[in-house]
Design a protein around this nucleic acid. Structure first.
Lengths: 236, 236
DNA sequence: CAGTAATGTGACATTCACGTGACAGCCTGC
DNA sequence: GCAGGCTGTCACGTGAATGTCACATTACTG
């Protein structure tokens, strides 16, 4: 994998310097911009893989840039992490609503930032893989929001679809109920953990209706949670 | 989730005391060391989940310990937060280069320290993902929570999995039943020491089901406890 | 070689996690 | 309004996992 380009947008030179250091240690290529105008130029000229964006910037707050990026087709998919000194929930919510992929409050540990960046890059690179996910005869069509099994459509609710989508994007890995709630239902939603069980049940039922073998794709990991395992399908 | 063990390394008793207080309020288990030698002993004996390390220490500065920890395979992944009174960029950079996960300058708010600790633990526990432990044909897949032996999955309960995980992370070393209870079951859990024997038995049985040779990986050290010894596998 | 302490092992009761069906509230569209 | 799909929660049943014991077996001691 070639080095990823990261654009740092912050008006304080010392912070840019610190980030450059941290990024280069982790083998990212680093671009810097001190204001929105410069940032926008670099984005179009250099097409970085990710943007680290300060909330407060001269010549317009960072969120304006974010809004602009998300409005334009070409830059919509560009991952953005907001950097903010503020901890108020409002800002976080506002940032995420406009489309930031993550936010991190100053001061932060460089390593944590790097970790989040990697997580986001991993996600975005695996998600652009076509508009459908496939496991054996099972095909999840993201755009049409349909699931096909051996040419026949499977019936399932929106939650089961999202759950299956998540599982198919993250195979061979056990997730706790809490993690699933977080990733599928979304954070700051409170529902009982056992609710996951019920939706797992519904999803299994839907898969089973298509082909009994495929229900075994979703395995229970006792004491932990669930796992989607195409690997064991071939064996069976 | 069992309480995380944190080792505090500082020569000033008052600071250790303060940290112990803060940590215990936040439900961390706290170990203390006043010098590098003691710190190193505790790290190998108690294998804490994280180290808070003072920069200036008698008998060698903290950074020397850090360097040592990062050089050795067994302790490389152990998260370290540097505590320092100095604010010079140099030190920070030096600390991060050697591999500290974060640094924090005195005086600091306990709350901030705790917050950073949690952030780092969250990361390290999820970053352990993707990795796997391997001994010969035996592969412990951490993120999928499975144990494979010669491509076939082994059946075992959660406790046996944790036990094996611990053993594979700490090979060639004998542990007493008390130590195993502490590490695998978690501190402040009271069960009979002989219970360990039973789970050892179950684990051996699971390994044996895969390949009889592999049951010998777990050796009895009479009068002491048990040892996981891949070394003797090749010999046999 | 007997005696004793330490460990192996099978069985068992209990606890606990999970599967499952039922149901009430909530939307949405008719 | 009501019909129907979707959701979250609960209660109940079941089987797995756990901890403990009793007894068998093995290793040390003198």
């Amino acid at each position: 994998m070639s080095a990823k380009k990261v654009l740092v947008v912050d008006d304080e030179a010392s912070i840019r310097e610190m980030l450059r250091l941290a990024l280069e240690i982790s083998e990212f290529e680093c671009l810097e911009a001190a204001d929105i105008h410069e940032a926008y130029r670099l984005i179009t000229d250099e097409s970085p893989d990710m943007v680290l964006l300060d909330w407060m910037l001269p010549g317009g707050s960072g969120i304006e840039l974010l809004r602009r990026l998300k409005k334009e087709e070409a830059t919509q998919a560009l991952p953005v992490i907001m950097l903010t000194a503020k901890t108020h929930e409002d800002n976080v919510v506002q940032g995420l609503e406009v489309g930031a992929d993550d936010y991190i409050t100053k001061p932060f540990a460089p390593k944590e930032l790097i970790a989040r960046m990697k997580a986001i890059l991993r996600r975005s690179s695996s998600e652009e893989a076509g508009s459908e996910l496939r496991v054996g005869e099972l095909v999840l069509e993201i755009d049409s929001r349909r699931v096909m099994l051996s040419e026949r459509a499977l019936e399932m609710g929106p939650t089961e679809f999202k759950l299956l989508h998540f599982f198919m994007s993250h195979p061979e890995r056990a997730y706790s109920r809490a993690q699933l709630l977080d990733r599928v239902w979304g954070a700051n939603v409170y529902v009982e953990e056992r609710t996951v069980d019920v939706h797992i049940r519904r999803l299994r039922k839907a898969l089973q209706a298509g082909d009994p073998i495929y229900a075994d794709l979703i395995q229970t990991v006792r004491g932990t949670g669930y796992r989607f395992s195409p690997r064991d399908l071939a064996v069976a």
